[in-house]
Amino acid sequence: MRDFEYLAPRSIGEAVALLQQHGAKARCLAGGTDLVLMMTDKIATPAYVIDIKHIPELNVFEWDPTGGLTIGAAVPFRILERSDVVQRHYPGMAESAGEVGSWQIRNLATPGGNLCTASPSAEIAPILWALDAQVTIAGPNGSRRIPVQQFVTGVRRTALEPEELLVDIRVPPPGERAGSHYIKLKERQKMDIAFVGVAAAVELEPGDGVIREAKIALGAVAPTPIRVPKAEATLRGQRLTDERLEEAGREAADAAKPITDVRASAEYRKEMVHVLTKRAIRQAVAIATQH
């Protein structure tokens, strides 16, 4: 690892000032499970490492029934995985948080860091895409908030400017009769990267089981996580039937643009998107029905 200067700002303002001063020579450090590894392999060789874990706003983890959930950029996966609020209101998020690495990794790694690394297979991405999460970004001119779908712009590329900092992830409150589910296809139970990740979030009309809103997102099958508006439209305003489900599954598979690599072939991934989308929707609807 190449040496660097370790900096630990105590406020957002201080962190932004450091980023302005050092620009592209600096990297922000959250859990370190990506960055320390990249520095060990000399893939990343920053002259300054800015540890953001001492900034109060980045450690916020708050739930409010009208505002939803705020996940500070320094909050580790383990907190989400174990949170009663997350398990109750965003079951798919608890599932995806629990899929990351090992216990040791989840005590360090953060959803914020996962987004900033912007790997196509980022574990937390599909569910955040399906839940219409937003991110708060701080910069020299104050802060801005954008949909998470606009945050990741390509493979390992984000909308962050060099002098900007990810502050938190905001997840809107779920509707009355809502359910979500995440499925990760992998070879091993743990310590593996997703071949395919599928997240579904649905909301039902009161009483009769008609789907008011459906959101489907896929990970690891395109340069960035993607939503599948076509499949969502197929389900919206409809009851869940085998035919609708089959159609939505096929539309999701059509939207997927996977690559063939050492883990799986593109064809296999597409077929698995088809199968797992159906499963994720069915499970999300089952959860919503219980409310």
Partner: peptide
């Protein structure tokens, strides 16, 4: 690389892989 856990220590009672912590 944080995969094997041989370097596990507790940080404030939580297990972490110390090879990934500065």
């Amino acid at each position: 690389t944080g995969d094997c856990g041989a370097c596990t220590v507790l940080l404030d009672s939580m297990p972490v892989t110390s090879c990934l912590v500065l």
